[in-house]
Amino acid sequence: MHKHEGMTLIVKTVTRISVWMILLYGTYIVFHGHLSPGGGFAGGVIIALALLNVLLAYGRNFVTEWLSIKFLHGLESLAASFFVIIGILGMVYVGYFLGNYLSKGELFNLLSAGTILPLNIVIGIKVGTSLFIVIWFLSELKIDKGE
């Protein structure tokens, strides 16, 4: 049944190779948010689009085997709460909410800018998972209509 789902063999083969590159690019954009254009929002959308690429090329059943939607829900909520936890830790160390308490590092280094890098990562995970969940539920629609 799986073989007939999704698109043709050519699309599937290309997707199998290209999806990893797109994921890598999304991660790069997230991690370099404090040095170059991009950041958590843009990188999160790229990650969601990579997962959407798999969903369109291989079909829903294939994705269900690899990714559970409950896990994505948990990841999303965890990312949202990590944002608040980082903020409260700033209250403990510096004295105000979302204070920048990590070391600033050297300008133009990857590990610099204190809490900006962890906040970017958290936002990237949050945006990527939540947008993919919406697309997931909207894609259910199409199968419903076919019945």
């Binding site: 040095l35 600033k104 133009f108 800018a113 204190g114 900006i116 906040l119 936002i123 949050k126």
Partner: peptide
């Protein structure tokens, strides 16, 4: 802030509270 991207330093350091509200809306 130590960030080369000044937009990023505004949204995640000076005005991180805005971003928290925005995440809540999303």
């Amino acid at each position: 802030t130590g960030a080369a991207n000044l937009v990023s330093s505004v949204i995640l350091d000076y005005r991180a509270y805005d971003t928290l509200g925005e995440i809540t809306v999303l």
